[in-house]
Design a protein around this nucleic acid. Structure first.
Lengths: 209, 209
DNA sequence: CAAAAAATGTTGACAATGTCTACTTCGGTC
DNA sequence: GACCGAAGTAGACATTGTCAACATTTTTTG
């Protein structure tokens, strides 16, 4: 009833974005398990059912968050490529570093991104597109490397997947805290070395490293 | 009260194991999110609070499940090593294949294993031990390979982590359904090729492949 | 061998959460 | 100025993790 009459803030204006913003924040502070729809609503100052006007259910909101994550990842890769134009080897190493850093800085988000159930048919077009964009940035980089003679002339898909898998694995292991299992492990250095080893495997044999 | 007097099945006998067994089954059928303590109790035919006599809380039970997973993984690696004694290259390829297969066959379990919060000080000694055993199996394999001249003489930790990261990444991507992003992708073949590429990177350059 | 104690299971409660339905209020259109 | 859909609210419900109190079984021990 007259809980509040003519409240100028009855309608939030842009609740959807606000929820996603708060979601990212909560993600990092309390993890995926601590991320609750009601908590999100509280954080945003709306009632507990308000999110349902913008998201079908919790999974839908999580998918939207994951899409944001992929978007950031794709942007970071494209930016890195721009910073190393004409230097595919430098681009490779910088991209690997940046990818892993991004994952380690936002572990909950990173896990969320790859924990999403594969978007079905018409489900989550945003998420599918963002994920595809990130993958496209990677394949484009590989294509440039092949053109420049840095990588051996293998299937682009194979090259891209090998790189992605290694970097993804390093990121996940780092997040899981398993990169330091080996006595004294500087996780950063281990990652660099592993990436260099793979480069040796996928590269043309010329530049003896 | 006299709900039941002198019930021969009042005490289950080995509820802990039964809960873990049911847990593994439920994991595969309904996923981690669908795995509920109460559901587990129902499945096992005990009351909803019975599990608390054997596990401190849900996280504790999940950790015990994860420990089982690592145990299986370690066993599989050791077995594979035994089947390829004296053939480090064959062992490498077979181990990679087996690792990935195991993860793909039990995706929820695999995710659970690496989703565990890093065991703190005295927490979850079982889990820590099982995880360490799996990693030890891997480093032992790498050590054999170095001794046999298959791998270049680099730090064992670096070699092991590179391999583990690649295989882990391939497994995770396969589980996430992202190994098929490339038009027509036989995920199995992609994995094999990626492992071969890394082998080329970590190997001594002699056997031109 | 009986009695005390420890282990194991049960019932009942509580707060929190995801989600649904019905109601209210706001912003804009005939 | 009345109307309509979008956006937000309140209230309810089933499910879940977890705790406390009680019951029963097994084990230890005097």
């Amino acid at each position: 009833m007259a809980t509040h009459t003519s409240n100028p803030e009855y309608h939030h204006g842009n609740l959807r974005q606000a929820l996603l913003d708060a979601g990212e924040k909560l993600l990092e502070s309390v993890g995926v398990d601590g991320l609750t729809l009601r908590g999100l609503a509280r954080e945003t100052g709306v009632s507990h059912a308000a999110p349902y006007r913008h998201f079908a259910d919790k999974a839908d909101l999580l998918a939207a968050l994951a899409a944001r994550g992929f978007d950031r990842l794709a942007r970071a890769l494209v930016a890195t490529a721009g910073e190393h134009a004409g230097d595919p080897r430098g681009e490779y190493l910088a991209s690997c570093r940046r990818y892993i850093e991004l994952g380690r800085k936002h572990p909950a988000m990173y896990r969320l991104m790859f924990g999403q159930p594969q978007p079905g048919v018409g489900d989550q077009p945003e998420l599918a597109a963002a994920g595809q964009a990130a993958f496209d940035a990677l394949t484009a980089a590989m294509r440039r490397g092949v053109a420049a003679g840095l990588y051996r002339d293998a299937s682009i898909e194979t090259l891209a997947m090998a790189v992605w898998a290694l970097v993804h694995g390093l990121t996940e292991l780092a997040i899981a805290g398993r990169l330091g299992l080996c006595g004294e492990g500087d996780a950063g250095r281990l990652s660099e070395d592993a990436c260099a080893l793979l480069l040796r495997g996928i590269g043309t044999s010329r530049p003896g490293a």
